[in-house]
């Protein structure tokens, strides 16, 4: 009897926005505990992340890898798969991009860069295909396997970066990639680079794939109701593998962007949990590209502003980690928020 749409409505934005507000409220308790004024601290956070072109560039730079990992995780979610392996996928992707980047010094940039980017994506995609195939063919749970694949990726890249591809300097890192393989900086001194455009392209492409193609129709069908998908002639196994490949490829772009755009080289364990924060980004963004974009920007802003808050106030930067954690808790406990906001009695 009750007619309600479950798509993008105000009711759907309630949980993400409510979660952020509640998390900030809880965060203010911690700020009070350290003896600061929450309003002041949050003002610093806001100004330092969005207050100037330079600050906005810094925020976007920190958001870029989160868009990739968030989008990758969200894509797998749409097929009913929980990809916890974005961290490993981005290391593998980043490493392959670095290897291509330090080799082939005589290629023109127009070819070198696309090859490095594409090879990184391909590597991440294939890396994610392994748990995908194990899930589709043998029913092994993808959560276990993607976690395990993370460790394999850590130690494999550890080996490569300290062994065959160790650069000329003492530190555990590769040589600089050739300038022809670099994602150019835009708006220096921030490290924002052309990877942000790649991220926006990825958002649009994922949107189109999911909602405008028959492939997306099949992937979402498998995610929503595998039995009905099977009945409709959709191969559940094939789509699961495909979804993992695309998910891994997109997530690995985070590593590619960090290597080719931010550091210019592969640095051992460079990622500050970008893959895991990506899970939070996907969750907060409701597995929708538009939501993922805003969630990634929010988390990017928290990291940028958090560093400044640490410098300018007595509030330690760890506060933003608490806020991030709170956001996830509140999103996960969405019923709680729904109850806080009065609603007409259900029919």
């Amino acid at each position: 009897m009750e007619l309600q749409q479950r798509s993008l409505t105000s009711r759907n934005l309630l949980v993400p926005i409510g979660s952020v507000v509640l998390a900030l409220l809880v965060g203010s308790i911690f700020i009070l505990v350290v003896g600061e004024n929450p309003l002041y601290a949050y003002r610093v956070l806001l100004v330092e992340s969005f207050g100037s072109i330079n600050n906005i560039a810094g925020t976007l730079q920190r958001s870029t890898p989160l868009i990739f990992t968030g989008l990758g995780v969200a894509f797998a979610f749409r097929c009913g798969l929980f990809n916890i392996g974005a961290e490993g996928q981005l290391y593998v992707g980043g490493m392959v991009a670095a290897i291509i980047g330090v080799s082939f010094g005589n290629l023109p940039g127009l070819i070198h860069l696309p090859i490095a980017v594409f090879a990184g994506m391909l590597a991440g995609g294939l890396w994610a295909a392994i748990p995908g195939i194990l899930k589709a063919k043998l029913g092994v749970h993808e959560v276990i396997n993607t976690i395990m694949m993370n460790f394999v990726a850590y130690y494999l890249t550890d080996f490569l970066v300290t062994g065959p591809f160790h650069g000329g300097r003492w530190a555990p890192e590769t040589d600089r990639v050739f300038p022809t393989a670099v994602l150019e900086r835009i708006l220096p001194p921030s490290r924002l680079n052309t990877g942000i455009f790649l991220a926006i392209v990825a958002l649009v492409v994922v949107y189109i794939v999911l909602w405008k193609t028959k492939t997306g129709y099949e992937i979402r069908a498998v995610g929503l109701n595998p039995s009905a998908a099977e009945y409709g002639g959709i191969s559940v196994a094939r789509n699961m593998v495909l979804a993992m490949v695309i998910s891994g490829a997109v997530a690995s772009l985070a590593g590619v962007e960090q290597v080719l755009g931010v550091h210019g080289r592969f640095i051992q364990r460079f990622s500050p949990d970008l893959g895991f924060i990506g899970i939070a980004v996907a969750l907060l963004g409701k597995n929708h590209p538009v939501g993922v974009f805003f969630a990634a920007v929010l988390f990017g802003a928290l990291r940028t502003g958090g560093a400044a808050m640490d410098r300018l106030t007595d509030v330690p930067r760890e506060l933003v980690v608490i806020i991030q954690a709170m956001i996830i808790m509140f999103v996960a406990a969405d019923e709680l928020i729904r109850r806080l906001v009065p609603r007409r009695r259900k029919a």
């Binding site: 479950r6 069908a221 929503l224 109701n225 009905a228 009945y231």
Partner: peptide, 12 residues
């Protein structure tokens, strides 16, 4: 379970 994807719209 089999016949419909309840979270898809009627057209889909």
């Amino acid at each position: 379970k089999r016949g419909l994807i309840l979270d898809y719209n009627v057209a889909d």
